[in-house]
């Protein structure tokens, strides 16, 4: 079996004051080992809820239907204790805003170390070694020393590198990246994307890459899932989706990407 992650007919229902709302409706996709699948959609389209469902981190009261299989094992309706062993060990996640996603009160070394020790146990010394190695892998200079620094002492791009180091320290099979470059400026964004692609090649991690930015998806994903209002409107290889979108929503999304070669209508030229 080549599939790492298989999501089938996933429906997520959240209780609200106006009754239950399906925030994800009947979504299916697969991620192979070594593969990156992009999930695209605007805010509120259900991208993040899909990823939280995989991690078992949905808000309290959320109901799920369908199936999520990781390495053949069903993830839905597991106890929290069972999911804890999967989180970080088999599936990791990185988030949009690395500054607020790191605890400001602890050194980055400790925050990576505690994750390593939660899954691998062992001595602090061994964990420290793994931490330094993980930081080196994501390109943090002088990792030995920097492990003792606090999140606010790093730049935005470095913080996201630290998040990536943390997510990968236990060598998970699946990495979910939820808008990992949205809070970064464009040059840093490119560096982080390159880093993710490089690491993926080295570690053979399957990746779910969530973004609202189609240009980013084009550069990193092999397959693309387009979501709109909780529904899956398009799913196919990146090539298919970009060159021959079947759905009107995808076409509109594609058209919304500004291109430098676009001819501006004469009345909109302001320069």
């Amino acid at each position: 079996m080549n599939e790492l992650l298989a999501v089938q007919n996933l429906t997520v229902t959240l209780p609200t004051t106006r009754g239950p709302v399906d925030v994800v409706k009947d979504v299916s996709f697969t991620v192979g080992r070594d593969e990156t699948v992009g999930i695209v959609g605007e805010s509120g389209s259900g991208k993040s809820m899909t990823s939280l469902a995989i991690m078992g981190l949905l808000p309290r009261g959320a109901m799920t239907k369908g199936s999520i299989r990781l390495d053949g094992a069903e993830l839905l309706h597991r106890t929290d204790r069972e999911m804890r062993r999967i989180r970080g060990e088999q599936a990791s996640m990185i988030f949009q805003d690395p500054l607020s996603s790191l605890n400001p009160y602890y050194t980055v070394g400790l925050q990576i170390e505690e994750m390593y020790r939660a899954h691998r146990g062992g001595s602090r010394k061994a964990a420290r070694k793994a931490v330094v190695e993980a930081l080196r892998q994501v390109g943090i200079p002088e990792p030995q020393e920097r492990a003792g620094h606090y999140p606010h002492q790093f730049s935005g791009g470095q913080r996201q590198r630290i998040m990536i180091a943390m997510a990968l320290v236990c060598s998970p099979a699946l990495l979910i990246a939820d808008e990992p470059t949205t809070a970064l400026d464009v040059t840093v964004q490119a560096q982080i994307l390159r880093l993710l692609a490089d690491l993926q090649r080295q570690t053979h991690t399957g990746m779910v890459f969530i973004t609202h930015d189609l240009a980013v998806i084009g550069s990193i994903a092999t397959r693309v899932l387009v979501m709109c209002e909780g529904q899956q409107v398009e799913y196919g290889t990146a090539e298919q989706v970009f060159s021959a979108p079947r759905h009107a929503y995808t076409r509109r999304l594609l058209e919304s990407i500004p291109r430098i070669t676009d001819d501006l209508p004469a009345d909109e030229v302001v320069l």
């Binding site: 981190l57 970080g88 990791s92 988030f95 790191l102 505690e114 939660a118």
Partner: peptide, 22 residues
């Protein structure tokens, strides 16, 4: 409700450690 609490949970830490430390 902080983001770093979500990170702590996504790391697979025990609820006690998540609460006590983070």
């Amino acid at each position: 409700a902080e983001n770093f609490m979500r990170t702590a949970r996504s790391k697979g830490l025990s609820p006690v450690l998540t609460m006590r430390r983070h």
